[in-house]
């Protein structure tokens, strides 16, 4: 099986079947990372460029490891966004990279829509590794994989996403992904962090974390991205943490088998208290582990080659 598309730009554009194919492929790749020799020859001779215009440790490393475990040649380019302003346009960068004949470009970019622009200019595959406040499809896929592993299914689950929904690409991708697979998604945050018309994507909206915890199977806490706020969207971190931070007291009303996700990096003590982040409900490190498998699956399904 292959994905019948050149690029992975968003979860919005993926069908339920495509998402399920990616998740089941990822499940089968998890085993590779458990081996002594963590490498399969599947993508030998393929070139993957990780083009990151924003700081990233987890996502970039995860894509790089995924590429290498598939035997592809991975090249990392990190450019700070300030040099983008002065430097060549994305179109020129795209054409230059294209001239070196890569098979796939993984793009992280501060501007929403940048991967879509890049994909128009290059013949190779493009994977969106997070664009502005738009989408972060591989993150949502690894979140779905993590939830699916724990509950054996996604359909019928209640997913609560808490934080700065307006600026969160993780939230958008997860709303699309989980609702496509039949879960019910509720987003929670102060009205200043709630983008206009978000409910039309197919989720419910709440301004009280307490209300959205009691029936949640999954609580996903988003990082407060102070760097994306021109002016603070809440009075103080202390107040935000009191109203929307997840601690053991707020978790008292939760279901016994609730799980906590966080895309990282965590602001300990802000959106999530340390005892929760490190506690038994937390699947945060499973997410990271699954990230590699999901990205291996994406490379495989886009770049093909027969699996042995």
């Amino acid at each position: 099986m292959r994905l019948k598309r050149k690029d992975i730009l968003s979860i919005e554009e993926l069908s339920k079947d495509e998402i399920e194919l990616i998740l089941s492929t990822a499940e089968s790749f998890k085993e590779v990372s458990e081996r002594d020799i963590k490498k399969v020859p599947t993508l030998r001779g393929r070139t993957i460029i990780n083009l990151f215009y924003e700081a990233s440790t987890r996502t970039r490393t995860s894509f790089e490891i995924a590429a290498k475990r598939m035997s592809a040649d991975a090249i990392n380019i990190s450019t700070s966004s300030s040099s983008v302003v002065k430097g060549e346009t994305l179109k020129d960068t795209a054409k230059n990279l294209e001239a070196m004949n890569p098979d796939c470009i993984v793009l992280r970019h501060p501007s929403s829509g940048a991967p879509e622009i890049l994909a128009k200019y290059v013949k190779c595959s493009v994977i969106n590794a997070g664009d502005g406040s738009h989408e972060h499809p591989s993150q949502a896929l690894l979140d779905m994989l993590t939830v699916k592993e724990r509950f054996g299914k996604i359909e019928g689950l209640n997913i609560t996403i808490v934080g700065d929904i307006a600026h969160s690409r993780v939230a958008r991708s997860n709303i699309y992904g989980f609702t496509k697979l039949g879960a019910k998604v509720t987003v929670v945050g102060p009205p200043t962090m709630m983008p206009s018309g978000i409910e039309n994507i197919g989720c419910s909206v709440s301004n009280r974390i307490e209300d959205a915890i009691s029936n949640a199977d999954v609580i996903m806490m988003l990082r407060i991205q102070l760097e994306r706020h021109e002016v603070p969207l809440f009075p103080t971190i202390r107040e935000y943490s009191r109203l929307f931070g997840l601690d053991s007291k707020k978790l008292e009303t939760a279901k016994k088998d609730v799980v906590i996700l966080h895309p990282g990096p965590i602001n300990r003590g802000v959106e999530i208290s340390p005892e929760i982040a490190d506690g038994p409900y937390s699947l945060i490190l499973d997410q990271v582990k699954n990230g590699v498998a999901v990205r291996m699956a994406l490379f495989y399904l886009l770049l093909g080659g027969s699996r042995e």
Partner: peptide, 9 residues
């Protein structure tokens, strides 16, 4: 509006 929300703009 909704379109801006979807596009992340």
């Amino acid at each position: 509006g909704f379109v801006a929300t979807k596009l992340g703009l």
